[in-house]
């Protein structure tokens, strides 16, 4: 990587001010940014280290829920008593997201900003990747695409968003709090990432100089679960994942929210399934029918048809696990 100027921000205003400059990048946990710089995905001239913004590393109760400061380390969020008790889906997603070491570095605000794991995107020398060089094409579309998207892809980009916590947040209808010199924006996690039909080169809606300051989750979801499917037991990105929260009336589903991970460029809510699940009994065959309905718009690439089956089964399993929590 080339050299850069390093500044430690001493306030959020200072961070936004510095972060707005040409060639600036915000450094939080560093677990992604430093790799991007090594690979050549980013080459900032100014790094704004926000580690000293102490007020952003707290978990606070807000009305009807929690605000998780953006700089909270992943392990601290996962092991927080209120998160473990009221939001097991989030705790579980975080604990499965990376190694213990990485979870000590990575921040909850930075995690949804991680970029796709597409091997063509992660090459040092790129031939065709619209996320590296807009307009250059998508080598994965006709290349090795076994781990790529089954929802919302276009031939311009078939990559998937790899964040685990973002999937849990999407199922929790979490809101990302974003600040800039222009003020504060509240962005639902479900809409935080950009699908390729809108812009194949984009990752998220976060603009330059904008700073994620926290993520808010509201209604506790004790009946919730996160299932991550991967070849190895730990420390690996998902083939698919499923986050489920259930509001139960005995054995009957009053309300369900289901988000799938690693199937699209954003956590993918199965909205049709969620509608159909209302009023259905756990363990009945209605559940599988409802899940199938959510896959009506799934489309396989040349090498990943299995992911449709796998994601469907993962969703079903996660519903079972959530009901048992």
């Amino acid at each position: 990587m080339h050299n850069f100027v390093y500044e430690r921000a001493n306030s959020a205003d200072n961070a936004m001010d510095l972060g707005h400059r040409d060639g600036a990048a915000i450094l939080a946990g560093g677990t992604e940014l430093l790799n991007w710089m090594r690979i050549g995905i980013e080459s900032p001239d100014l790094l704004v280290d926000i580690r000293d913004l102490g007020h952003l590393d707290r978990i606070e109760e807000i009305e009807g829920g929690l605000r998780i400061g953006a700089l909270c380390r992943l392990n601290d969020v996962a092991c927080h008593p209120a998160i473990k008790r009221d939001f097991p889906v989030l705790s579980s997603a975080i604990l499965q997201s990376a190694s213990a070491q990485l979870r000590n570095l990575a921040t909850i605000g930075g995690n949804p900003l991680q970029r796709v794991r597409c091997p063509y995107f992660r090459e040092e020398t790129v031939n065709a990747c619209n996320k590296r060089h807009a307009g250059s094409g998508c080598a994965a579309y006709e290349g090795h695409n076994e781990r790529m998207a089954i929802f919302g892809w276009t031939p311009e980009c078939v990559a998937v968003q790899p964040s685990d916590p973002a999937v849990a947040f999407a199922a929790l209808d979490a809101v990302v709090i974003v600040q800039s010199t222009d003020g504060t924006r509240r962005i639902p996690m479900r809409e935080f990432h950009v699908l390729p039909d809108e812009d194949p080169s984009a990752h998220s809606v976060l603009g330059r100089g904008e700073l994620i300051t926290g993520i808010e989750i509201s209604t506790p979801a004790p009946h919730s679960a996160y299932l991550k499917v991967r070849e190895r037991q730990s420390y690996e990105y998902a083939l698919v994942s499923a986050a489920v929260t259930l509001d139960l009336d005995g054995e009957t589903i009053r309300n369900a929210r289901i988000a799938l991970g690693s199937v699209a460029m954003r956590p993918w809510r199965l909205l049709a399934t969620e509608d159909l699940l209302v009023g259905k009994r756990l363990g009945s065959k209605d559940i599988a029918e409802a899940v199938d309905a959510g896959f009506a718009e799934a489309r396989a690439l040349s090498g990943n048809a299995y992911k449709i089956t796998l994601a469907r089964n993962a969703a079903l399993r996660a519903i079972e696990l959530a009901s048992e929590n």
Partner: peptide, 27 residues
């Protein structure tokens, strides 16, 4: 690996284990 993918660089910072390849000396 120099990418946080192997753990051989693990050290304690303020008592917590981290991948030292993903921390700037400046930080």
């Amino acid at each position: 690996c120099n990418r946080g993918e192997c753990g051989t660089c693990t050290v304690l910072v303020d008592g917590r284990r981290v991948n030292s390849c993903l921390v700037l000396a400046a930080s």
